[in-house]
């Protein structure tokens, strides 16, 4: 078995607000293997973005990583052996973290407008990133001139399917349509040849037809460069198309995780099962009541005791669900579930 490229272990992130503290991420663990696409699904506010931002140490104030480790396997430079670093231990603004951001791990953030500055051209911003991380293109350490960097950007733009790349390099982000901006953002994320790409809902704001193009592009680039991708979305259809393995999150915890086929065809956690039932399918019966998940997501200040899903769970096992937090346990080939239905109620956290 290959060693994971990234391994998140029991991550806890808390936001201390005036009104109380929010446990946005409450013990999340998952692995990303090299060259693999991990899909993360979950409803709004379940902590997907916060988990991703923790990996890059970009959690907004007043968020704090309270516990856990994020192990990243750094490649050996100049014949040195590989090293495993715990990203949570690095200084937020230190040189090591800055070298990792962009060059090793790139993020396509959730808000597309926020990613580019409106006062510089898209090209300038990417050129700057390339010059900063020139080692990714010139391992010998010799710098890149502006003209050379620009060449790279034009090639990248062509790669991501932007027509007229020579001209588009000099456009401002607000001059680009939604689909083009998304492509430019992908180009930016790929500009430093990261080994891990985190895409936070890259297609939520765009149309299905454009989405289909962007997804095809990501799949192709992933094949070409062998980049590992963490793909966040709340669209189960997109996950089914993109991911090799899936992490289902609920209220800051991993409910279930496993290979994509198992998640869709043999889901174990009641939440995953309910979620899959509740989506209207493009092939199913129409105008009938859809099975729903009862209730609403609890307020972040009001986390339920025990299993966070128990107040809404329709397969609740018994009183232990409200009393203890089930831990994430392997149940099958690569599939793990945190639910008392699938393991002993002594496996708590």
């Amino acid at each position: 078995m290959t060693a994971p490229l990234l391994s998140v272990r029991d991550l806890h992130v808390t936001f201390g607000l005036d009104e109380g503290s929010v446990r946005a991420v409450d013990g999340v663990s998952f692995d990303v293997l090299p060259g693999q696409v991990v899909g993360i699904v979950g409803e709004s506010g379940c902590g997907k973005s916060v988990t991703m931002r923790s990996i890059l140490q970009l959690v907004d104030e007043p968020g704090r990583i309270k516990q856990g480790e994020i192990l990243y396997r750094m490649p050996g430079v100049d014949g040195q052996p590989e090293t495993v670093v715990d990203l949570t231990k690095l200084a937020k603004r230190g040189p090591q973290m800055r070298a990792i951001r962009g060059a090793e791990i790139a993020l396509i953030p959730q808000e597309p407008m926020a990613a580019f500055s409106p006062v510089h051209t898209v090209g300038d911003q990417i050129i700057e990133a390339i010059q900063l991380h020139h080692r990714q293109w010139r391992p010998d350490g010799s710098g890149l001139s502006r003209a050379e960097a620009r060449e790279i950007v034009v090639d990248l733009f062509r790669d991501v399917g932007i027509s007229m790349p020579d001209q588009r390099v000099d456009a401002y982000s607000w001059q680009l349509s939604g689909g083009l901006r998304q492509r430019a953002m992908i180009a930016m994320a790929l500009s430093c040849k990261p080994r891990l790409l985190i895409a936070d809902e890259p297609t939520t704001a765009i149309d299905v037809t454009t989405q289909a193009q962007v997804l095809a592009l990501l799949r192709e680039l992933q094949r070409k460069y062998g980049t590992a991708i963490i793909f966040i979305t709340h669209d189960l259809g997109v996950i089914a198309q993109m991911a090799n393995s899936v992490v289902v999150m609920y209220l800051g915890r991993v409910a279930e995780q496993g290979p994509v086929d198992a998640i869709f065809h043999a889901p174990k956690h009641p939440y995953t099962r309910a979620l899959l039932r509740s989506i209207p399918s493009i092939v199913g019966q129409t105008q009938v009541a859809l099975p729903t998940i009862a209730g609403t997501l609890p307020h972040p200040f009001n986390r339920p005791s025990g299993c966070p899903y128990h107040p809404r769970c329709d397969e609740r096992k018994g009183p232990e669900c409200a009393a203890r937090v089930p831990s994430l346990k392997p149940v099958d080939q690569g599939q793990s579930v945190s639910c008392f239905l699938h393991h002993d109620s002594s496996d708590t956290q």
Partner: peptide
């Protein structure tokens, strides 16, 4: 039509 189970406590009241 579809009664909602109240999961919130009265703290928020």
């Amino acid at each position: 039509v579809d009664p909602i189970i109240e999961t919130e406590s009265l703290v928020e009241e």
